[in-house]
C-alpha cells in the first residue's frame, strides 16, 4: 500500500492538478467500497398477537388477487405474508404460536438453483427477486422451497370492479401461470433510496425500520426491518440477541428473517 501511495504521490507531484484527483481516488480506495445493504427482518414472536394485520396489509400493498372460497380450500390462495399456526403440547397444556412468515430471502436459496430460466435471482441487496415475465410456471422453485413461500398463479387474477381503483400503482399484477413471492416491498426500498439520494444523504436505519407494509402495519410493532450489514441497525442488534432463531436452520439455507422468542420451543 505504501509503495503504491508513494508512487501516486510522486505522480501527483508531477502532473499537478491531475494528481489531486488521483489522491482522492486513493482515499476512496483506503476507505473501501461503499457498504452493500443486506436487508433482513426480525419478528418478535413474544410481541406478535396473531392479528394477521401484516398479511392483510401485504395483500393490499402488493395487489394480491382474491382466490375465492373454492380455490382457498384447495390451497390455491396466494399469501406473500402468511401466518403459520403451530401448537405446542397436548390438550390441557395447549399453547398456540403464530409465525408471521414472509419469504425468508435465504442467503443460499434452493429456489434460485432450480429455476431453469433465471426468473428468480438474488439482488445485490440480498433480496430473492422474481421476474414474472420470464417465469415459465414449471413450479420447480415452489417445490424446492422448504418454507413453501412461493406461490403459483393458478388462474388469471381478478378483483371486483369497485376494488380496482384501490390497486397499488407501484406493483404490477401477475398473470396466470407464473410464480410470485414476497419481495420485502422492494418498490418501497427503491423509493426510500431515491428520496435519500435526492436529499443528499445516505439511507439510515430510521428510514427503513418500518418500511415494508407488514412492518408498518404491525400494531404490536413486532416486525423490524433493516440492514443486517449495518452494525448499528436495530435489526442487526435484535438478530444477534440470544432470543433469535431462524426456521429450519439445519437445512443451511441461512434465512435473513429472524424470530425472537423467550420460551424454548417444545414440539
Amino acid at each position: 500500500m505504501s509503495r503504491t501511495s508513494s508512487r501516486r504521490a510522486f505522480l501527483g507531484a508531477l502532473v499537478g492538478a491531475a494528481g489531486v484527483a488521483v489522491e482522492e481516488a486513493a482515499a476512496v480506495e483506503r476507505s473501501g467500497p461503499p457498504r452493500r445493504h443486506k436487508w433482513g427482518m426480525v419478528i418478535d414472536l413474544d410481541r406478535c398477537t396473531g392479528c394477521q394485520a401484516c398479511a392483510v396489509a401485504c395483500r393490499a400493498e402488493n395487489n394480491i388477487p382474491i382466490a375465492g372460497a373454492t380455490n382457498t380450500e384447495k390451497g390455491r390462495s396466494i399469501f406473500w405474508m402468511n401466518l403459520l399456526a403451530t401448537s405446542e403440547g397436548t390438550y390441557p397444556d395447549l399453547r398456540q404460536q403464530f409465525f408471521p412468515t414472509p419469504c425468508n430471502h435465504c442467503e443460499d436459496p434452493p429456489c434460485i438453483k432450480v429455476c431453469p430460466v433465471g426468473a428468480t435471482s438474488q439482488s445485490e441487496d440480498g433480496i430473492t427477486q422474481q421476474i414474472p415475465d420470464r417465469c415459465i410456471g414449471c413450479r420447480l422453485c415452489e417445490v424446492s422451497c422448504p418454507y413453501t413461500r412461493r406461490y403459483f398463479n393458478w388462474s388469471e387474477p381478478s378483483w371486483p370492479v369497485a376494488w380496482r381503483e384501490h390497486l397499488n400503482p407501484d406493483v404490477a399484477p401477475r398473470p396466470h401461470g407464473v410464480i410470485e413471492k414476497c419481495l420485502f416491498c422492494h418498490h418501497r426500498i427503491r423509493a426510500a433510496k431515491a428520496r435519500s439520494r435526492a436529499e443528499g444523504r445516505i439511507l439510515v436505519d430510521a428510514d427503513v425500520r418500518r418500511l415494508p407494509a407488514c412492518a408498518q402495519t404491525c400494531p404490536a410493532e413486532a416486525i423490524v426491518f433493516g440492514d443486517l450489514n449495518d452494525p448499528d441497525s436495530e435489526v442487526r442488534r435484535l438478530a444477534e440477541s440470544p432470543r433469535a432463531f431462524r426456521l429450519l436452520e439445519e437445512l443451511g439455507t441461512h434465512p435473513k428473517v429472524f424470530y425472537l422468542r423467550d420460551a424454548k420451543w417444545q414440539e
Binding site: K113, V114, C115, P116, V117, G118, A119, R134, C135, I136, G137, C138, R139, L140, F152, N153, H176, G177, V178, I179
Partner: peptide, 23 residues
C-alpha cells in the same frame, strides 16, 4: 403442465441456467 406453455421452450433454451436440473 407448465404455467406458460407459450414461453416454455424458448425461455429454457434462450435464458437457461446451467445449474438447473430442468435445463
Amino acid at each position: 403442465d407448465v404455467g406458460r406453455p407459450e414461453r416454455f421452450i424458448f425461455n429454457v433454451v434462450w435464458y437457461g441456467r446451467y445449474h438447473a436440473p430442468f435445463v
